[in-house]
């Protein structure tokens, strides 16, 4: 891949292209990683819903990594490492936004409701 980058030179910013093999590998992995979560939910193969949710989330994370590597050609050297740095920064923000929102709003839901209930029972 590095030889290819040199051939392209500065013209295309050194962005790496994939190979036929790479795209096919990514595609086959994606099909498998998509099919299993759908199968799990459609058939209810795991009795516990929470366990199913954790498993399909794990499959999603793995599939996102597969797409990043095989389709978006992410690696630590493209664009001199700046694209990876931008990705890591974005991921940190995404994690803060998602976990922060869910955590805070869950506690608001859980703590405010009984309060209202108590108020109604007051003399």
């Amino acid at each position: 891949m590095s030889a290819h980058d040199h051939a392209e030179g500065h013209g295309l910013g050194g962005a790496a292209h994939g190979s036929f093999r790479g795209y096919l590998t990514g595609f086959v992995l994606s099909v498998i990683l998509t099919a299993i979560p759908f199968w799990l939910v459609m058939t209810g193969a795991i009795d516990d819903k929470q366990a199913t949710a954790i498993v399909i989330m794990a499959f999603a994370v793995v599939q996102i990594v597969v797409h990043m590597v095989f389709f978006l050609h992410m690696n630590t050297t493209s664009e001199g490492g700046w694209s990876m740095l931008a990705l890591i920064f974005t991921l940190i923000l995404v994690v803060i936004v998602l976990t922060g929102s869910l955590w805070v709003m869950y506690h608001l839901n859980a703590n405010m409701m009984p309060g209202l209930h108590d108020m109604r029972e007051m003399p």
Partner: peptide, 30 residues
């Protein structure tokens, strides 16, 4: 060369787009 930094710039745009989706996912999650 002309357009030498386009790919990085476009990647940064995609990352900002990713943040938009993160907000919408957070809203849906809540």
């Amino acid at each position: 060369a002309e357009g030498g930094s386009t790919m990085l710039g476009f990647w940064l745009y995609l990352m900002s787009d990713c943040l938009i989706f993160a907000m919408l996912f957070a809203a849906y999650g809540v």
